[in-house]
Write a protein that binds this DNA or RNA. Structure first.
Lengths: 223, 223, 223, 223
DNA sequence: TATGAATGAGGATTCATTCAT
DNA sequence: TATGAATGAATCCTCATTCAT
């Protein structure tokens, strides 16, 4: 392996273990000793690749956002009408969460962590620009739907926001309850029906979407 | 002032300053030195009232939850039909947030903080029971609406969940953006329209609710 | 109950609970909150009776020493010759330990605790004077034995010291092992034979004392 | 100096200063700030070498026990008969105490300190195993003496215990008195005669050992 | 470039003692 | 006289960051 390859490999392994640890413990509680150990490098080496704990955190976040964006973009193009394209986005998003729950964990964490105040302005802007990119995708789908007469004229930015917030907060909430071992409703139907409900609210012909009937409270317990 | 009054006063002031500090810094970063100083008591005094940092945190959370619940309950009874009662809840909730934004901050914080893992089981159960109480109120309104034929038959627990998640996540998200000084859309219309959109999605006669037309992007900057 | 009686009662109860706590935890670790609680008085009340933690500790020690001395003195007078009188002392001492192990604990503790450096000179002198009083009793018995020709001429002060040290260290050592749950030999025969062995060493006619033969190692486990 | 040498040097210096401080103040009162300062390292450095205050304490104890055992073992092999070999052990033990009084201090301290309850079981077992090793040496000498007909048949384990306790408690007691500046008898003759007295008590021909006559009370004052 | 030993500021918690009621 | 709330110094331990090797 060449020197450059070795360096890239080290960087990759550091990011990988940082993701694990930040995911599990959050920014404040995460311990760089453990990150270094998991990555198989010395603690000092971390500082050759990242300027500080915050910098490393941001790098992890950035990588996640990039992965997300590409995925969402692709999903948004599958389907012949707004409702189907939105379902596609929702399904991909959900599937990705199932595969990589920790990506999401960190993804949200940044909103709540108290580090924020200490991150450089540029970093914050970068993070929020990622959010906006994703929002743009959803917005585009809605806008197309309104243009084609499938959706009622409405504030598509607002609805895009609502859809994002619903999706994220349902998953996040389920996540939290699982971690805390609190009883909770099965996530997948809850999540998909939430999207359907909102979409039904802006359809010109709401009857196109049949909402599911009341279900008995099938609870789920954390594994 | 009698001794007992002084004691109650001390406790109140400690809770008050703890709320401020936990709100601003989160559990991990919050510094008990500062809490004591703001409360005008000695550091050791904190430990006469609360067994530990975590215990103090829980006390703050509990107080907030109690306040919330009473408010929501009252609001849910104002209005003649499900849509109006839901609007009432939403409005009260929003108004309360305007008055006491820090209450909400902490309210949500518990979902993300890494303390959770270290809190005793009983405390976690207590906190989630508060959430369930609030959810029950919303669920009751929806159930009434379905019974009266105003709403389509649907899984009212799911919809109640969705409404809660939407409301909370919009406010929380706005909050976060404000703190980070990220440009954002005006919260109030976004928030109310989100509720309307979801309600419209389960109305037997969707046309009863007119969604707002597209708005130019009036941005807001954090004060 | 008169006011004076009440005061005496309080003092007694404080000393009692202090003894328990100091016994169990040692001076440094002992907690005056617990002492007050066990005594059924307020923490501040302790300071009406004793000037400081150290002062209270000394009061407990003093009371124990007094009790010991009276006992030893009486025991030393039972028996017709030096060997029997010494056996009597040893037996009483041992019996008293069985009844009041915590008295002994504190009794010895003062030799090892790190408080010493902080106790006032007068207090230290007082404590050591108690030891000397006890030593005097033993010495008196030996001196009588030498005078009567029962014991060989020897340095009776030295032998008295040795006897005391043997007795105390065997009991203390057993005590420690019990607390630590370390296997140990049965104390009583070990203790009595030790006294016999030393006495045999200064007898004019050593054959008067038959030493016990080797015993199988009957171990004892802490209860 | 290489990095490894420096590391060893740091460890050595920490142990050294820890010994001093633990000796002087006991476990509870000992202050790690001072240990670090005396060792010329930062406070945090202590924790690179030892996991906790207790761990450091145990390390000091362990090192002392090792040193003792090797010494005692060697001494027990010098001499042609049981009495002489026992004198050899006693003399070496005493000499070592003169050279390294603080080793002994800590050596005994562990029996009285209240830390014990908090030390892990394995550590306690290790510490007591050291005691047993030393006891074995003494026992071996006595057993040889009985076999050769030099000593009367007796419970050699008991006598070994007594000899150890006598030796230790005399030294410890002298130590304590010195620290407290209490007048005391010269230790060396007291100590050696105590051993002689006990040995005389188990000799087949007691007259082989002449006990010293009464001495005027030559007192010693702490330096 | 990588290492890992050293750093030292920072923070939670304890508890003997004081003093206003 | 008794109380018990308040105090705040004391201290163990953590961990992000630095820098000599």
């Amino acid at each position: 392996m060449s020197r450059d390859e070795k360096k890239a490999e080290s960087r990759r392994r550091i990011l990988e273990s940082a993701r694990e640890v930040f995911f599990r413990d959050g920014f404040m509680k995460a311990n760089l000793d453990e990150v270094a150990e998991k990555a198989g490098v010395a603690k000092g080496t971390l500082y050759r690749y990242f300027e500080s704990k915050a910098d490393l955190y941001v790098a992890v976040l950035t990588r996640n956002h990039e992965i997300f964006h590409d995925l969402i973009k692709a999903a948004s193009e599958q389907g012949d009408n707004a409702v189907d394209r939105m379902r596609s986005i929702a399904r991909f998003y959900f599937a990705h969460w199932l595969d990589h729950p920790d990506y999401f964990q960190i993804f949200w964490a940044v909103d709540n962590e108290s580090v924020i105040g200490e991150l450089p302005r540029a970093v914050i802007d970068q993070i929020s620009s990622f959010w906006e990119l994703n929002l743009n995708v959803t917005h585009g789908v809605l806008e197309d739907g309104v243009s084609s007469g499938e959706l009622v004229p409405c504030d598509t930015w607002e609805v895009a926001n609502v859809l994002w917030e619903v999706a994220n907060s349902l998953i996040e909430s389920d996540n939290t309850k699982a971690r805390r071992q609190i009883r909770r409703r099965p996530l997948e139907p809850l999540y998909m029906h939430a999207i359907e409900t909102v979409m039904r609210g802006i359809l010109v012909e709401p009857t196109r979407i049949q909402l599911s009937p009341a279900q008995p409270m099938r609870e789920t317990r954390a594994s």
